[in-house]
């Protein structure tokens, strides 16, 4: 799908529509939109070959602001619509824009099956841990104790971890970023480069209903100590190289270790390997606070895609056969009346 034909390179402006953007002033969605529009010219695909498909929610207005083909569908069903789009036209570059409620609550089933099938597309899950468009109810990713109109005394149910859900569903690419991060375009590029379903969780600040809920790790001040940006083949270092992630061999769990004089090897710091699925499981489950927030490409190990398998089987079974409708309807147990 990603065969590039040399085209005149577009600019971010070419990916902007004339539509007025209708998110709340200060919403994290603006930063994500900018990051996507900035990334698109780098990907070598034309706007007309690109489709943005969304469900329902604040994030799902996204397609209206992208100068591409776009489909704003119904709540939770974007993955299913995207599956039909991709199977009917495998040459299209398909992006799914969704939120925590859309992808994990009403649409959890579709998200799971799209990942399991490995449809070649990018899924950008804007996680703000709240229902924004319906005015602030707690969501499936809200932390225990979240006070909201529907949980005035605090929520009591445990949240889902989107990246753990994705891995559990069989995802072959899992990454994390956040709205205002300068690394977000790199994460998006990596997602696009992955052939197959690429799952990207983007922490997004809902300034009206869940303001600064990610501030503990996303705030620029002290970020180096709270963010672990993962890079394939590089040691898992953070806090300006003073700390790292190592393996506790007694408990087979991850631990934070101090690194003295840049000697991460003797501190036992792990080298990130995006193809290590077991490690990815541990990274997505690292409890923040005790650990930094794992960001960037956590897992990337492609496998044949669903759409290519469908196309291949359809082609193989049609090979050498001429579709003859008259013959088809004349099949079976027949008789002739003279």
């Amino acid at each position: 799908m990603n065969d590039m034909t040399p085209i005149q390179k577009s600019s971010p402006k070419d990916w902007e529509t004339d539509q007025e953007v209708r998110w709340c002033p200060g919403c994290g969605d603006y930063a994500i939109l900018k990051a996507v529009q900035r990334t698109m010219p780098e990907l070598g695909r034309k706007p007309e070959d690109t489709v943005f498909i969304s469900g329902i929610g604040c994030s799902s207005r996204f397609p209206y602001y992208m100068e591409t083909y776009g489909f704003h569908t119904i709540h939770g069903r974007a993955p299913a619509v995207a599956t039909g789009v991709k199977l009917a036209n495998p040459d299209l570059d398909v992006w799914i824009i969704t939120g925590d409620g859309d992808a994990l609550s009403i649409g959890g089933n579709h998200t799971m099956h799209l990942l399991r099938r490995n449809l070649d597309c990018q899924i950008l899950l804007f996680n703000n841990e709240i229902y924004g468009l319906t005015k602030g109810q707690y969501s499936p990713t809200s932390r225990v104790g979240t006070k909201s109109p529907s949980t005035p005394f605090g929520s009591v149910d445990r949240p889902a971890t989107p990246c753990a859900f994705a891995l559990g569903s069989g995802a072959r690419f899992v990454a994390r970023g956040f709205d205002v991060s300068k690394h977000l375009p790199d994460v998006l590029k990596a997602a696009h480069a992955h052939k197959g379903a690429a799952f990207v969780e983007i922490f997004q600040n809902c300034i009206v209903y869940n303001k600064d809920v990610f501030e503990d790790f996303a705030a620029p001040k002290g970020a180096e100590a709270r963010q672990l940006w993962l890079q394939d083949g590089q040691p898992m270092l953070f806090d300006d190289g003073n700390k790292g992630i190592a393996m506790d061999m007694d408990t087979l769990t991850l631990k934070v270790v101090d690194v003295a004089n840049g000697d991460w090897q003797s501190a036992g710091v792990i080298v990130h390997n995006v193809k290590n699925r077991a490690l990815a499981h541990m990274l997505v489950e690292m409890p923040f606070g005790e650990f930094p927030m794992a960001l960037g490409v956590l897992y990337d190990d492609p496998r044949p895609t669903y759409d290519s398998a469908v196309v291949e089987q359809n082609a193989k079974l049609s090979e050498g056969k001429t579709p003859d409708l008259q013959a088809l309807i004349s099949k079976g147990q027949t008789w002739t009346v003279d």
Binding site: T73, T83, G84, A88, H113
Partner: peptide, 24 residues
């Protein structure tokens, strides 16, 4: 005969995928 069939995860996905295909 140019037919692609998709056994979806549920009834909703079945029609939603068909709508996606029509769009495409």
């Amino acid at each position: 005969y140019g037919v692609t069939t998709f056994q979806a995860e549920d009834e909703i996905a079945a029609i939603a995928s068909a709508i996606g295909a029509s769009y495409a």
